[in-house]
Simulated scan of single mutants.
Amino acid sequence: MPRWLPRAMILALALIACFQLGSWAFHQLIGLLVNVLIAFFLALAIEPVVSWMAARGIRRGLATFLVFFLVVGAVAGFVAMLGSILASQIIDMVESFPEYLDSVINWSNATFHTELSRVAVQDSLLHSDWLQRYVQNSATGVLDISTTVLGGLFRLLTIFLFSFYFAADGPRLRRALCSVLPPAKQAEVLRAWEIAVDKTGGYIYSRGLMALISGVTHYILLEILAVPYAPALAIWVGLVSQFIPTIGTYLAGALPMLIAFTIDPWYAVWVLGFAVIYQQFENYMLQPKLTARTVDIHPAVAFGSVIAGTALLGAVGALIAIPAVATLQAFLGAYVRRYDVMDDARVQGGRRSGGPGDGRPVARQFWRALRTGGGPRP
């Protein structure tokens, strides 16, 4: 046996063991890594505001706390308004359920000549097997729901703590990172960090402005139609349509349409038509102007990045995909050498006249040959 073979076998087994250990640790820590990634992008989003407040004499820790306090307060107020809407709608549905049941029973008796009554229907529903099974499953699922809620609260707390430290200790973190790199690499890291802050902050602020415009326009429509809870519904439409990629527009319009339908079915049609028209106005007029200087990426690239981010990290990847791709594009754009484009019609999608790819001279000779009865002239 060669002397190097046992040593090579031990080295190979050690590498396999290290790979297995690293893979196991990565899968165990994937949740924490995703939370840290979300916290990092959240810290990048609030970095301009924190730096602006710190430049005016406010300590970074206090400035970060104030920003987070405002964000948490706004989110809590939004959730409270949305909860009040849902609670009132549920109460109205429960109170009007006997009327709905009577109307359905009367329609069934008049159409199918049955002899149903509300008491008989209620008794059959209360003593049905599927209702008892549903109640049992709901009772056993309460613990699972409570565990999910507690896990979500703990995850939010983890994200806020990490993002608070990233934003409050941003200069110290950059200094620690640059201390282990040579000067040339330090400049590149700081440049990438600055681009990430600009792109992420610009994305959040442009989305916030579009959410404000969308909320105001939908609020005017809901007030004209006299739909209840118009302010809360307008806030819902603005935030959900802008900060949930791809499907946010449909989720945002579903709730106002449902509430408008309870008043008049035609109101739901009006809300749907307005949402479709406004979406086209936003996509082709409003969004290109607001995001031209902040997140200037092609719509197809943005859509593909959202799909790729969703496939990799789910909803988290969909949220951070666009600012991440915009940061990468801006960073790589500094190292790509660009040239002046030649004045050629083919650049604009046309064809060069008289060139090898132009078939017009050959076509003229062909038609001339058909008219004269001879072959094409040289």
Rank of each mutant, 00 (worst) to 15 (best):
residue 326 A to T: 06
residue 270 W to P: 03
residue 323 P to N: 09
residue 340 D to W: 15
residue 276 V to T: 05
residue 194 E to D: 15
residue 66 L to R: 01
residue 234 A to N: 06
residue 10 I to A: 10
residue 158 T to F: 13
residue 342 M to G: 08
residue 127 H to I: 12
residue 363 A to N: 04
residue 227 V to Y: 02
residue 138 S to G: 04
residue 265 P to M: 14
residue 268 A to Q: 00
residue 256 P to G: 12
residue 285 M to W: 14
residue 94 V to N: 11
residue 247 I to W: 02
residue 136 Q to G: 09
residue 180 V to Q: 02
residue 271 V to H: 00
residue 213 I to K: 03
residue 123 D to N: 06
residue 156 L to V: 07
residue 61 G to K: 01
residue 291 T to Q: 09
residue 368 R to Q: 09
residue 110 A to I: 13
residue 256 P to R: 06
residue 330 A to Q: 01
residue 319 L to S: 01
residue 75 V to P: 00
residue 243 F to R: 01
residue 165 Y to N: 01
residue 339 Y to I: 13
residue 210 M to H: 12
residue 33 L to I: 11
residue 265 P to K: 10
residue 237 V to I: 15
residue 172 R to E: 03
residue 373 G to F: 07
residue 112 F to W: 15
residue 188 E to V: 15
residue 282 E to W: 11
residue 322 I to T: 11
residue 79 V to T: 04
residue 281 F to S: 09
residue 70 L to W: 06
residue 282 E to P: 01
residue 212 L to M: 03
residue 196 A to H: 01
residue 327 T to R: 00
residue 190 L to C: 08
residue 37 L to C: 04
residue 73 G to I: 11
residue 115 E to C: 12
residue 268 A to K: 00
residue 324 A to T: 06
residue 297 I to D: 00
residue 310 T to Q: 06
residue 173 L to G: 00
residue 256 P to T: 10
residue 124 S to D: 10
residue 45 A to Y: 02
residue 238 G to H: 02
residue 378 P to W: 07
residue 148 T to R: 12
residue 121 V to R: 00
residue 358 D to T: 08
residue 282 E to H: 05
residue 249 T to C: 05
residue 192 A to M: 13
residue 201 G to E: 04
residue 198 D to S: 14
residue 140 T to V: 12
residue 263 I to V: 09
residue 146 S to I: 06
residue 377 R to M: 14
residue 267 Y to D: 10
residue 302 A to V: 04
residue 376 P to S: 08
residue 102 D to E: 08
residue 1 M to R: 04
residue 190 L to G: 04
residue 42 L to P: 01
residue 376 P to H: 07
residue 223 E to A: 15
residue 251 L to I: 09
residue 89 Q to H: 08
residue 166 F to H: 02
residue 102 D to T: 13
residue 92 D to C: 09
residue 341 V to I: 14
residue 202 G to V: 13
residue 4 W to C: 06
residue 367 W to Y: 14
residue 297 I to F: 06
